[in-house]
Design a protein around this nucleic acid. Structure first.
Lengths: 345, 345
DNA sequence: GGCCGACTAGACAGCGCTGTCATAAACAGG
DNA sequence: CCTGTTTATGACAGCGCTGTCTAGTCGGCC
């Protein structure tokens, strides 16, 4: 059986194709009885509109493209990141009856801009979700903007600029984590900063400081170390911090890998976690649950962010693009086993 | 600047739109000089053909849909599975200038068949890659076949049926693993079977038997245990196998999780791995490298399989659909630390 | 020189929809 | 009952391409 077209439906229902189109697209000004007739014809023929035709005639594709960094998506540790994003984006697409195209992108190659434009002009998506870290690569953002396609950038850290974007309350939640540690009685809470290139880094550090202040603790340079986001660097930082005679009773690392490094070092130095040392991380990667003790960390609501991003895109298509805004999806503390009351001395 | 259309190019080049189309699609019978003229016009205007129009007029969408099981894709342990598939599929799509649509699918809901058909008739993909375990769900396969869209099923285990599919040489490589263990001097090689629902299970067991035979070892029921693919069941099986006085010196589990369970039990029983017991798994999931000792296992070439699948799809579109075939992408042994020479007693 | 085939190029319909506009029907109000 | 307005429907163009068919051009060969 050849697939039914709008003409078939129109004929069967005894109306014009335009009326069928109206019914299918829930347009107003169709009499109830006509609507019924058409509905029956539609379901009888099992009619499904051809997207290509809709797209061509209607200038909208019901397609969202999710663009993310290519090689990093396939490295096991970050696979979770992109899967979560996809999960959220797909959820929003599904409810709005959109489809999702995924497009990994190597931003280091010269022709990214050209590649992006080609992609966009070919498929004409109704919107684009640009995942971190690409969300801060200027030439990509610019290329997309030049095509006039609605764009939402998703990034756990704050995105600079005034475009649509969705972010988390990184700073606030890091303050919350710090307060949480303080509330357990910790007075000497150390912080391990991450790779300075990461956008998120600054905010997390600021959040840490906020948290100290809010808890009535004073900030000390001596309790801050700088890593590069790797487990190894976490170990190095921990070694430094823990060797001090007046050592911290809690260490808050700007990401989970470094926190894992801290736990390793504590184990080596025979410092009990969480008995003698509380450790907290950030990101809630898979590893966080797999290590012992399971890591207290901050859950990144990646799926929710992507979901939000797609919804923004779809809404902005309906209404005219409103004021430029950035949505914030709150991250939450995941308290597990690596934190506990401060040791009494 | 409004996007250039084929008419713009034709006008600039001083030819008909059909000629532009010919040049762009590398059709024959265009004079070299004309081709050049058109090429120049194309690059000057930065022309990108509108896919929707191509699709509508040409009855081909240059779109591949990857369909996979929904909830399971988002569970962390299996995220790697689907990411790998995507990786391969994307690779093939990229080189052939196709785009990839991803479509998770909950196969337990009633209307899957209808949903699949709606998806297909709407987007009219040129081909569909159906990932395991969906590749063996009859109602989905049937629904897709009824739409006459080229379908390739990807499944680590063998797929039954006579459709296009790509699989691995599960049985052969399991035989290889068994021979490998035998070559290390092991005489008592036990096997832990997985969940009987899994298609792959039977083949792996057969491969194990093949391997024994090829190594001149005899098969014994006593050396076979049955788990359900979980770590816990692996522990249970290991406990049984290792409590026997005449205990095996090597255990080959049908998946990595169960192998991990074996290692846990060995640790608990103070049996050294690989000193006193060699352990091998299958699948090479992320966990395999994270546990200690790192697990010797069998690498599933998921990316390569998906790549292959998409290539099959694209080729079958070019030539007429040839004879139904199943491509086999070989899996390979990943020898790591959990296996070693049999203990001398 | 005339005819045939191989190349090359263009005219044109039409893929299956949606947008626009015209028209018809229904409904007010005076 | 007629005009003015709203509501319901249809006619038709056209989105930007590709497929088909036709027409012209060129050389080769008898």
């Amino acid at each position: 059986m050849p697939k039914a077209t709008i003409d078939d439906v129109a004929e069967l229902a005894g109306v014009s194709i335009k009326t069928v189109s109206r019914v299918f697209n829930r347009e107003p000004n169709v009499r109830e009885s006509t609507r019924d007739k058409v509905q029956r014809a539609i379901s009888e023929l099992n009619y499904q509109p051809n997207k290509a035709a809709q797209n061509l005639a209607g200038h909208r594709s019901r397609l969202i493209v999710l663009i993310y960094d290519d090689p990093s998506a396939y490295e096991i540790p970050s696979a979770g990141f992109i899967i979560r994003m996809q999960e959220g984006a797909l959820r929003a697409c599904r409810t709005a009856n959109y489809e999702l195209l995924i497009h990994p992108c190597r931003y280091r190659i010269k022709d990214v801009a050209k590649e992006m434009k080609a992609l966009i002009e070919q498929v004409r998506p109704d919107g684009i979700v640009l995942a971190a870290p690409l969300s801060n690569v200027r030439k990509i953002v610019t290329a997309i903007e030049e095509t006039d396609t609605p764009l939402v950038r998703v990034s756990p850290g704050k995105t600079n600029g005034k475009l649509f974007s969705v972010a988390t309350n990184d700073r606030e939640v890091c303050a919350e984590m710090t307060r949480f540690l303080a509330s357990l009685g910790h007075k000497k809470i150390a912080f391990i900063m991450g790779h300075p290139e990461h956008k998120a880094v600054g905010n997390r550090f600021l959040g840490y400081k906020d948290g100290l202040e809010q808890s009535g603790l004073s900030f000390s340079e001596d309790l801050v170390a700088s890593g590069d986001n790797s487990i190894l660097s976490g170990e190095a930082c921990a070694a430094t911090l823990l060797k001090r005679k007046d050592r911290p009773t809690a260490i808050f690392a700007a990401n989970d890998d470094m926190a894992a490094g801290v736990i390793r070092v504590a184990d080596r130095l025979n410092i009990e976690v969480p008995g003698q040392l509380s450790v907290a991380g950030c990101d809630d990667i898979a590893l966080a649950q797999q290590i012992y003790p399971a890591l207290t960390t901050i859950n990144q609501p990646l799926a929710a962010m992507a979901d939000q991003a797609v919804m923004l895109l779809i809404d902005s298509a309906r209404k005219s693009r409103t004021t430029q805004e950035t949505a914030v999806v709150p991250a939450t503390l995941k308290v597990r086993e690596s934190t506990g009351p401060a040791p009494k001395d």
